[in-house]
């Protein structure tokens, strides 16, 4: 094995790995840039020093945001005064809120619970207090249906087991 072979392997493997990770990143980026068609819109407005949210049905929230688990949402993010940045660390959401511009970011919460919303761009004296709470709630079952997760564990365990063979 001569020197040129080693050099070709060196160059080839490095270039191949870089192209592979570049292609993967491009692929993920493409999905993150295009929300599903049935996504619900939530208008997010940042201003010194709080967040306001407006749902599709006109319902407004201040300092709190209530979403439903398993539903995709598109955030239309803007600001009224200075630059802010809308950040939900647990859901990997981070997008600048810029006055006069609407930025988009979509997310589908996959676990219910309470999450932190914060400003991630220094925006003035009370930047550190510019926080809100995200509540992800379980979907309300349509009448007639009962979600298995809502059935008490004792009842689930009491279900008859059907043998496969």
């Amino acid at each position: 094995m001569g020197h040129s072979t080693v050099e070709w392997v060196y160059v080839g493997v490095v270039v191949a790995l870089l192209i592979y990770i570049g292609a993967s990143a491009w692929d993920v980026e493409r999905f993150l840039d295009h929300p599903p068609k049935d996504a619900k819109v939530v208008k997010v407005t940042g201003q010194q020093w709080f967040w306001t949210f407006e749902h599709e049905d006109g319902k407004k929230e201040l300092g709190e945001l209530h979403l439903v688990k398993g539903v995709p949402y598109v955030f239309e993010i803007t600001s009224r005064d200075v630059n802010h940045s809308f950040n939900i660390p647990d859901l990997t959401v981070l997008m600048d809120a810029v006055p006069g511009r609407i930025n988009h970011m979509w997310v589908m919460p996959d676990a219910s619970g309470e999450y932190l919303i914060q400003c991630r761009e220094y925006c003035g004296f009370s930047h550190y207090q510019m926080r809100a709470k995200l509540f992800v709630e379980e979907a309300i079952p349509v009448s007639g249906e009962t979600e298995v997760s809502n059935i008490p564990v004792s009842v689930q365990e009491a279900k008859p087991v059907i043998a496969n063979n």
């Binding site: 292609a23 692929d27 295009h34 996959d110």
Partner: peptide, 26 residues
């Protein structure tokens, strides 16, 4: 290997798919 990576991304399912961002990004 390089061509396969590019082709896989280029012919992947169209954008608009429901994904869990957290999982994909991490």
């Amino acid at each position: 290997v390089v061509m396969f990576s590019i082709l896989q991304a280029a012919f992947a399912q169209e954008a608009g798919k429901v994904i869990i961002n957290r999982v994909e990004v991490w």
